[in-house]
Amino acid sequence: MYHGLLFFHLIAAFLLAVTIVMYSAVALGATSSPRMLFVADRCWDVGGLGTLIFGIWLALNLDQYDFFDGWILLALLLWFVATGLGQTVQRGIGGDDIRSVIALHWIRTIVVIGLLVTMIWKPGA
């Protein structure tokens, strides 16, 4: 059970990485197509939902983890921040203020890397 949940949790995390890489390419000046942005946005939606669902399931499934462990609460906080930033980036990418959208994307990228750091180091565990 643990390994299956971890697999789907990781797959969801990799979908988030697909979004981060595609948007980073756009932020660095690559030509963006509607199809690429569509793929990136759907990966963000599915990956975000998947990491949350399977992450919470993992926390509840294992005796070693408690839902109210500091690192799990921190991960949830970072997840909500990243999701909010992601939604803002998705809405703003076709607009006029592309510089602020790019800035928000880089902040989202740092938050997602922070999530990875939290998952590996598990501060407070």
């Binding site: 990799f14 990485a17 697909v18 595609m22 030509t31 197509s33 690429m36 890397i113």
Partner: peptide, 28 residues
């Protein structure tokens, strides 16, 4: 951390290549 970060960058870039080549954007 280094291993997973590299793997995530790799998978993300592979997905981008698939989309770019499928759209015939050879340069990207």
């Amino acid at each position: 951390f280094v291993h997973i970060l590299g793997a995530m960058a790799l998978v993300g870039a592979l997905a981008m290549v698939v989309v770019a080549l499928a759209e015939r954007d050879l340069r990207l």
